[in-house]
């Protein structure tokens, strides 16, 4: 996993609540057995005017000019600003894979769905929760400022606006460490292999029907 320490990136606003993982990456693209290549189909049904299928040459597809990510001013955005309950629905990790492949490294929202939130941390994407008021003000700022950038400082746990205002956020200490260092958490867990084995042995003797 790529480290996440500090990001200075362009912000794209997606002004909707309850953006679900079906919208982030529609099901027809879940047939892939790879982890990469989902970026061209991120938000496929909103981004293109035709029906997307795996294996298409996306450069030939008609773009929806009204969709925010198709607008020139947001080209190259690395921070997605959105509303509450982002990533609800399916557990598909293809959703963060698609965001990452498109170029997003951070998502700022009022709240996130649990499984999506978890999946972000496994892929070097930082999901940041800010209050509804802070989110509202960021939407105004981004709208009013072409080329609006934000600095996301994970070490100090703050989002810094170009006008200098800082917005503190909270991340679990363990997840923060993993992101800052780009740690593979399977490797971390396996350091406790002896504890797992001991737990398992005790469980097997106490509740043998679970191991039949």
């Amino acid at each position: 996993m790529e480290k996440f320490v500090r990001l200075d990136g362009l912000v794209a606003p997606l002004d909707r609540a309850n953006v679900d993982t079906d919208a982030i990456i529609p099901k027809q693209f879940l047939k892939s057995i790879k982890r990469s290549g989902f970026g061209p189909n991120l938000f496929d049904e909103w981004r293109y005017l035709d029906v997307g299928e795996p294996g298409q040459d996306v450069s030939q597809r008609p773009l929806n000019p009204d969709f925010v990510l198709n607008q020139e001013r947001y080209r190259g955005a690395q921070i997605l600003l959105t509303r509450k309950n982002f990533g609800c629905g399916s557990s598909r990790e293809h959703a963060p894979w698609a965001l990452l492949d498109f170029g997003f490294r951070a998502v700022i929202a009022e709240s996130f769905a649990d499984i999506f939130f978890n999946n972000c941390f496994k892929n070097g994407i930082l999901p940041i929760v800010l209050s509804a008021g802070e989110i509202d003000r960021l939407f105004w700022l981004v709208e009013a400022t072409p080329g609006c950038r934000l600095i996301v400082d994970l070490e100090r746990q703050r989002v810094i606006r170009t006008d200098g205002e800082t917005l503190p956020f909270v991340v679990d200490a363990f997840r923060r460490e993993c992101l800052l260092n780009g740690w593979d958490d399977i490797g971390l867990t396996l350091r406790h292999a002896d504890l797992i084995r001991a737990f398992e042995d005790r469980r097997r003797s106490e509740q043998p029907w679970l191991f039949a």
Binding site: K122, D185, I186
Partner: peptide, 10 residues
């Protein structure tokens, strides 16, 4: 509960 693919591997 549901998990993502990284957690399936985990």
């Amino acid at each position: 509960h549901g998990i993502g693919t990284s957690e399936v591997e985990h």
